[in-house]
């Protein structure tokens, strides 16, 4: 049986402890929970905020497609993905992935896979605002992120 991942795209912050508790409440089949939280860096003190633009509708749909692929590939028993949009200050949360499984390897792999695909396939774009008041423009996509996908190719 494959699970139904919980996917949310929201402006509000999220709470890791609360989300983990929600995923594991009343469950006795989960032996491992892996969480990944992506936070906003200040880029050496230069950045005042990141502005995340997203494609409403497609963002949820694309994350769900990635999550379903992960759920088909690994024996995971729970999956939560939350991605924020709007203005986010240094130190604040941007993205959360929680993967649960009976044994740890599937949870580690699924969380890793999700983040790699999320970065390059989920329709979000970051713009940098500097403390100087300057708009530093749109963040360029990294070739390394694209290359990271190749490790998930199956023979």
């Amino acid at each position: 049986m494959t699970i139904t991942p919980s996917v949310r795209v929201q402006a509000e912050n999220f709470d890791l402890t609360e989300e983990t508790a929600k995923l594991t409440a009343g469950r006795f089949d989960i032996g491992a929970v892996v969480t990944f939280t992506g936070l906003c860096r200040d880029e050496g003190g230069q950045l005042s905020a990141l502005e995340l633009e997203h494609y409403p509708g497609m963002a949820e749909a694309e994350i769900s497609r990635i999550a379903e692929r992960a759920a088909e590939r690994w024996p995971i028993t729970g999956l939560t993905v939350i991605h924020r949009f709007g203005k986010i200050a240094p130190g604040e949360n941007i993205v959360l992935v929680i993967a649960a499984s009976p044994h740890r390897q599937a949870a580690f792999d699924a969380a890793n896979f999700l983040m790699d695909f999320l970065k390059t396939r989920a329709p979000f774009w970051k713009k940098e605002h500097l403390k100087s008041g300057q708009d530093n423009g749109w963040v360029d996509a990294k070739d390394l992120d694209e290359q990271a996908l190749t490790r998930w190719e199956q023979a």
Binding site: H54, P123, W125
Partner: peptide
């Protein structure tokens, strides 16, 4: 993207209600 799914340049647009254009994504 056509109808909110990624597509490439060869994809026919006949079935499209909505087509979106955007830079490479930088979320996560």
């Amino acid at each position: 993207a056509i109808n909110q799914e990624h597509v490439d340049a060869d994809t026919p647009i006949a079935e499209a209600q909505e087509i979106a254009f955007f830079p490479p994504m930088t979320g996560g």
